[in-house]
């Protein structure tokens, strides 16, 4: 309960401050146009966009899942001792194979 109150209070405070301080002036056309180093845009910026490292993003969400297992593991690590080390070593070893494969396929570059 405390936690939620703290989160809500900080968020609410910051949102109020941001809402209260910012006054968006109605800009005239040249000022409102996006900055393009002197050029004029011919489309909206919100277009389909080719995000180059997309394979990296996919591998990342799979790999990041390991964190979910690692946090509880860290808590009992000292109490479980070598067994914990071996099990997590195996787990991370398995996942590292995937990273190595991805690296060899060049996913950590712009595609």
């Amino acid at each position: 309960m405390d936690a939620l109150l703290i989160i809500a209070a900080w968020t609410g405070l910051a949102a109020l401050a941001a809402w209260g301080m910012q006054r968006q002036a109605g800009a005239t056309a040249p000022l409102a146009a996006p900055f393009l180093g002197g050029g004029t845009p011919d489309t909206h910026a919100w277009q389909r966009y080719h995000f180059r490292p997309y394979t990296m993003a996919l591998v990342f969400i799979a790999f990041e899942m390991e964190m979910m297992f690692m946090y509880p593991w860290a808590v009992v690590f000292v109490r479980e001792g070598a067994k914990a080390l071996a099990e997590m070593g195996m787990f991370l070893g398995i996942l590292s194979v995937g990273l190595l494969y991805g690296w060899r396929e060049g996913i950590f570059r712009w595609q």
Binding site: V59, G102, I107
Partner: peptide, 23 residues
Amino acid sequence: FETAGVTLLATMLGAVILSSRQG
């Protein structure tokens, strides 16, 4: 836990194979 590791590995491999353009 370890099976989850293998499953995630399979996921990573699958994602790379299916989506990577430059091999």
